[in-house]
Amino acid sequence: MLELRLVQGSLFKKVMEAIKDLVTDANFDCSATGFSLQAMDSSHVALVALLLRSEGFDHYRCDRNLSMGMNLGNMSKMLKCAGADDIITLKADDGSDTVTFMFESPNQDKIADFEMKLMDIDSEHLGIPEAEYQAIVRMPSNEFSRICKDLSSIGDTVVISVTKEGVKFSTRGDIGTANIVCRQNMSVDKPDEAVIIEMQEPVTLTFALRYMNSFTKASPLSNTVTISLSSDLPVVVEYKIAEMGYIRYYLAPKIEDEDEEPKPGVKNERD
């Protein structure tokens, strides 16, 4: 038996919007600690990890650890039917192959039940070790979103480099190049607008902008985003979900090709 009630139902909707572009099918895991998900995109370049802790729900009951395979496109269709202020309850019975979404209007005069079929999904669960990152950047989420969007109109990849001066996002494309530097700025009156850089050592990594852009779909969940970088690890882009948990995206960097060896006499056009 599983029953999760969230008065602030729009949160479910926002979470869904933040995931569905990246992953088509995924297993949601429920346990006494909370409601979580880990899923990779089809090419295994990016991973999303979601946690909504049980304390954050208005009612949380989960008798045993379960996983529910859902198609995120379908789930999103169902959740779109919920009003912005609706209370959302998610229910499933043991041994059942469906999950029910119940939407209650705030004044309780309308109650809707949507039942969705579950799926069997074979998915690999990756073990993500705790790690110390060489650089951690915290910045306003809409600022990061804007940067990724702007850069992707010029190039396919972004080079993120963190130095003492600040964090630099740069790209290069057929029409030209772009560099955006955000300096450390700890404005006290508006903490959400601060750019805070914690750096052990300078780091520079390259990523595909396409994925970054789909991560920024989580911006409505949080005013700030935290980007953790290490030269030998995937980047972590984290959006905290107030009092409940987080949504974290991991993205494998682009790596220098070890097989690259220019032929003698032929000019290698790579820079």
Binding site: N65, D94, P234, D257
Partner: peptide, 21 residues
């Protein structure tokens, strides 16, 4: 051809939850 894959950083583990169905 230089995009890395997550599997080269993280290794698969066995999930503890049982499928509901």
């Amino acid at each position: 051809s230089a995009q890395g894959r997550l599997e080269s950083f993280f290794k698969p583990v066995v999930s503890t939850s049982l499928p509901i169905k």
